[in-house]
Design a protein around this nucleic acid. Structure first.
Lengths: 246, 246
DNA sequence: CGCGATTTGTGCACGCCTTCACAAGCGCCT
DNA sequence: AGGCGCTTGTGAAGGCGTGCACAAATCGCG
């Protein structure tokens, strides 16, 4: 679904739409808004208020309005936001209208699951290639996709115009894989290996460490336990949920 | 992340050691430091400088020093930090010396992988129970653990003193699962389902949405593409790596 | 047409986090 | 013992993000 900018004054910017300078925190929340909006759209809602959308996304309504205001005025005062319009706009900003090709390296325990993860395809990502260094795994078919050897990565990445790579290898080989990915033209990496990657400045890396999340929860368990052990400690302050990022 | 003030010890250190009031951002980095320290310990290092550890963890050295200073003075000026001592200290703070029991709900594609994820066990977490609502999956053995029906969750959670639960179900059943977990005494939840969970204030929820990470990368791809398309745009702005948090 | 109800967009203040820069402290060498 | 180099720990400044509170804008209705 290609699309150009809605509404916005045609008087400014050039052929390439001016790219808004969004705060990183806002960017991280846009996918959450998008999910909530899709949900609302399926339910038949045509418009939604900042209050309603904020509740659906689990954030403060003022924060949501400020986030959305960064990408332009797509709301109508007294009414709310047009759901369909906002969906299109956020998908455009996130670049999800490109049906991006993704490759996955490391078809082990986790990689196997990621290769079949339905959440990727449903958000506009196509996993177009799987790689592994183990020749015993090459040729294995997962979710309709055959595993290739990592030596073929540069060729296939070029053929398929792959810009995003997912690393699901053991940590000791993650850096080597990252080097190959970068060499092959990949400019965004999602790293599931628990290690620090070194990449050129023009390459973006995001890291997901499942064990770290548990350790953070463990800390809070420890804290809560030591609080309830104390005389005055009642753990019922105002708490809300939401996490990740950062 | 759930905020929650916790007044530190009223008087001085009691039987329960005074629990430091760590910034959330610091907590999120401690596991990273810990991983780097384990790596250094295996390599035989006895001490490490803030510069060295910061590099291994992929952060700024000043930030690392400030983080560590929050948990006390465990470094020696002119020398650095004692690796073994720091490992013990961080593990204590994170509550990893308790070998915490974890249960996993939802043995689908992702849940299967998580049940076998070695990174959990190696960081002091024991996955002691697997649950699913599908009776066809009950009894299936994964990684030496048999899948139980979710109706048995309250009983088993009590027996095993489970305080941490992992949700890897489809989003439409995640809230119901969370309710059962909370009802069963679980006070920390790691949620892999792409939805917002509503829980009591004393329960901590962290969310990991794999698709969101890809969408954030997609945004940066989009941004980089529109930058290189612009005349003045050279794609060598100050790019850094590392992410998540935040 | 005007008014009130409603909701967006945003100026502002506050607090958290990051980063710099440097004094204080420690060990080693002479 | 004394000085020197190295490293930690921290005060201060700046930036970023959050949330409040309100003005501006829009719709519906009498």
């Amino acid at each position: 679904m290609s699309q150009q900018r809605h509404g916005s004054t045609p008087g400014e910017a050039g052929v390439v739409p001016a790219f808004p300078d969004l705060p990183e925190a806002t960017i991280a929340r846009l996918p959450e808004y998008l999910r909530a909006l899709h949900h609302l759209a399926e339910a038949g809602a045509e418009t939604v208020s900042s209050e309603g959308l904020a509740a659906a996304a689990g954030v403060n309504s003022a924060k949501l309005r400020k986030d959305l205001s960064h990408l332009g005025s797509y709301g109508t005062r007294g009414v709310g936001y047009d759901v369909a319009l906002l969906v299109d706009q956020i998908e455009y900003i996130l670049g999800l209208d490109k049906n991006r090709a993704v490759c996955l390296v490391g078809v082990g325990n986790l990689g196997h699951a990621l290769a079949g993860y339905a959440g990727f395809a449903s958000r506009g990502f196509r996993v177009v290639a799987l790689f592994d260094a183990d020749r015993k795994k090459v040729g294995e078919v997962i979710n309709g996709l055959s595993v290739s050897h990592i030596d073929d990565l540069p060729r296939i990445a070029a053929e398929e115009s792959i810009a995003i790579g997912v690393i699901a290898t053991p940590p000791h080989s993650a850096q080597a894989v990252a080097d190959v990915l970068v060499e092959s033209g990949v400019t965004s990496i999602l790293n599931f290996a628990p290690c620090v990657l070194s990449v050129p400045a023009n390459v973006d890396v995001r890291k997901v460490d499942l064990a770290i999340e548990l350790q953070i929860l463990s800390f809070h368990e420890h804290r809560k336990a030591s609080l309830t052990a104390l005389p005055g400690g009642r753990g019922d302050a105002a708490g809300n949920q939401e996490a990740v990022g950062s």
